[in-house]
């Protein structure tokens, strides 16, 4: 159960990306967060595992308050949160297996990690997952030889092998064609069901959200303005989320693809600080 209370984020530039968002996510629900570019969707997701440090508010996972943890405690707790990225963020020069196994690093000693000495049960799980995502036989391929759709499936396997309590997906379909996008969404919903974990997907394709999600959150200008089922997401509701601006169900929201703070987040904090 993920509980977010009054989450607020102000970037160094003074932009207020989140103005105080509260939401609970639990069970095995697939939650899609929609909203125009720059609404704060990515910021919200990244604040949950503190890849972006929230300014205010609390995030708790199974009553463990993430926002109050120190570096080492946070590292340990991050093992319970799987994350899938828009640009896949796989380590390109490593093999598929090595990328999937990154999901187990938190449980491994440094020495074992260095020697790629993974426990047999993890290897078994990795093979099962590669099978599940449709990449069986690809374990020794280097990731830079894969297509976008295949990469995202490796990304999903890496997140799922963590055996997380929640799966976060930050625009997992934005870099993919419509057909592959559907495959990825199906996979994510299947995992929610199969592994009994909630999945939070932030996505700008409203059509995909309506088709695959159990619940939709509408974010606009850092504020949660909609929380309901896909059937409750009426045209009026969409108007509120997109502030009356036209949007296109199939691909991008009609809102200008302005350089938004959502993607411009690599914080310059030293690498090993957290």
């Amino acid at each position: 159960m993920l509980e977010v209370e009054n989450l607020r984020k102000v970037y160094d530039t003074g932009d207020e990306a989140l103005t105080g968002v509260s939401v609970d996510i639990g069970g095995r629900e697939v939650v899609a967060m929609i909203g125009p570019s720059g609404a704060g969707k990515s910021t919200f997701v990244r604040c949950i595992n503190r890849l972006t440090e929230p300014t205010d508010g609390t995030v708790s996972l199974d009553s463990e308050e993430l926002t109050g943890l120190d570096d080492e405690e946070l590292r340990v707790e991050r093992r319970n949160i799987g994350m899938v990225f828009q640009e896949y963020n796989l380590v390109e020069r490593l093999t598929v297996m090595e990328n999937v196994m990154q999901g187990r690093l938190g449980y491994l000693s440094n020495w074992a990690a260095l020697r790629r000495n993974f426990p047999p049960e993890d290897i078994e799980r990795a093979y099962e997952l590669l099978d599940l995502v449709g990449l069986d036989g690809m374990e020794d391929k280097r990731v830079d030889e894969l297509s976008g759709g295949q990469r995202q499936r490796v990304g999903i396997a890496r997140a799922v092998i963590q055996e997380p309590k929640i799966l976060l997906a930050d625009e997992p379909t934005s870099s993919l064609d419509p057909e592959t996008s559907s495959v990825v969404m199906e996979l994510l919903t299947h995992i929610a069901d199969d592994r009994d974990v909630p999945v939070l997907i932030n996505i700008h394709e409203v059509g995909l959200a309506e088709r695959y999600a159990d619940r939709i959150l509408g974010l606009t200008a850092g504020e949660l303005v909609f929380d309901g089922t896909p059937t409750e997401l009426t045209d009026e509701a969409k108007d509120v989320i997109y502030r009356g601006e036209t949007f296109d169900d199939t691909s991008h929201s009609g809102v200008d693809e302005a350089p938004d703070q959502e993607t411009a987040v690599p914080e310059t904090a030293p690498l090993l600080e957290d």
């Binding site: 590292r75 340990v76 991050r78 994350m83 796989l90 090595e98 690093l105 440094n110 890496r158």
Partner: peptide, 19 residues
């Protein structure tokens, strides 16, 4: 981004370096 993804799994600083 690649480093960040490894960090998000709960890897130690040393593992971050290696992976």
């Amino acid at each position: 981004g690649q480093v960040e993804a490894v960090r998000a799994t709960g890897a130690t600083p040393f593992q971050l370096l290696v992976y």
